[in-house]
Amino acid sequence: MMCIVVTKLEGERCALETQLANVKAGTLSSTLQKQEEKNRRLMGKLAAMEHQQQQLEQMLKELMDSKNNLAYEKGKLQLCELESWLGVSHQGGGSVAQTLENILASHSRLQHNTESVQKEVGRREQELASLRRDGLQGQRAIQRLQAEVEKLKEKLNAGTLA
């Protein structure tokens, strides 16, 4: 009689352990799926940010090229205008001054734009670094959860859940 009760209790215990293992495995699988989805989203954001950074770097390069070209043209124009101004009456000097003022204003705007782009590139680089950190943390969490799922599967197969 006692053996029958013990056998029934052991059977119930095994059934409960199996249910517990299934619940734990299901919870871990769900958590793992959420972490993988979060990781996919972060990796997508990272790719988008890297693409934007490349575009910003290209824009910065173009601005720097434009700035250098403008400086070259400014020097060339100043020389030509100075030569012509020296050869003409004082009345012609007003247009030279206006041209030089326009060039300086354009150069100032270009410098301001270049600084703005450089600040944006710096901000994007910080954001990329943050996304990379988040992605690595997500990958570590996924690996940890996968290892835990594997351990639970092994225990479930061995029937030794505590």
Rank of each mutant, 00 (worst) to 15 (best):
96 V>A: 14
23 V>G: 05
40 R>H: 11
10 E>W: 07
65 D>C: 09
139 Q>W: 03
61 K>W: 05
87 G>Y: 04
121 V>G: 00
117 V>E: 02
121 V>Q: 01
74 K>N: 03
155 K>G: 13
147 A>M: 02
93 G>P: 06
14 C>Y: 04
73 E>M: 15
120 E>Y: 00
146 Q>W: 00
20 L>N: 10
26 G>F: 00
5 V>Q: 09
98 Q>H: 14
157 N>Q: 08
31 T>F: 08
117 V>P: 07
43 M>K: 14
145 L>R: 05
135 G>V: 09
84 S>T: 15
108 S>T: 15
159 G>E: 01
42 L>P: 06
139 Q>E: 12
17 E>M: 14
128 L>E: 11
156 L>I: 12
37 E>P: 06
13 R>E: 14
148 E>R: 11
126 Q>I: 04
148 E>W: 03
129 A>H: 13
73 E>Q: 15
141 A>D: 11
46 L>T: 00
134 D>N: 13
161 L>E: 10
4 I>P: 07
92 G>P: 05
70 L>N: 05
78 Q>E: 13
38 K>Q: 07
85 W>Q: 08
142 I>Y: 08
68 N>H: 04
80 C>S: 09
86 L>I: 07
144 R>S: 04
91 Q>W: 03
51 H>Y: 09
117 V>K: 01
67 K>R: 09
54 Q>R: 12
57 E>L: 07
90 H>R: 13
135 G>M: 13
7 T>V: 09
65 D>G: 11
132 R>G: 01
19 Q>G: 06
104 L>V: 09
67 K>P: 02
119 K>G: 02
83 E>R: 15
97 A>M: 02
10 E>I: 09
63 L>K: 06
157 N>L: 02
101 E>A: 15
81 E>Q: 12
147 A>R: 06
137 Q>G: 03
135 G>D: 10
150 E>H: 15
107 H>E: 15
104 L>I: 11
138 G>Y: 01
146 Q>A: 02
162 A>R: 10
113 N>D: 12
51 H>W: 09
134 D>P: 04
12 E>T: 05
118 Q>V: 02
3 C>H: 05
45 K>D: 13
124 R>P: 03
75 G>F: 01
68 N>F: 00
123 R>A: 12
160 T>M: 04
15 A>R: 00
108 S>D: 10
148 E>I: 02
129 A>G: 04
23 V>S: 11
73 E>I: 14
149 V>D: 03
155 K>Q: 11
84 S>H: 12
132 R>Y: 02
127 E>R: 01
142 I>M: 10
93 G>I: 05
152 L>K: 08
91 Q>G: 09
31 T>E: 12
87 G>V: 10
48 A>K: 11
128 L>M: 12
85 W>D: 13
93 G>F: 05
147 A>V: 01
145 L>F: 06
3 C>L: 04
6 V>I: 13
117 V>Y: 00
86 L>K: 08
162 A>Y: 10
105 A>W: 10
2 M>H: 08
129 A>V: 11
50 E>Y: 03
43 M>P: 08
132 R>F: 01
18 T>Y: 01
24 K>V: 07
121 V>D: 01
70 L>W: 02
159 G>A: 00
69 N>Q: 14
124 R>H: 10
14 C>V: 13
36 E>N: 04
158 A>G: 09
3 C>F: 05
115 E>T: 14
21 A>I: 07
26 G>C: 00
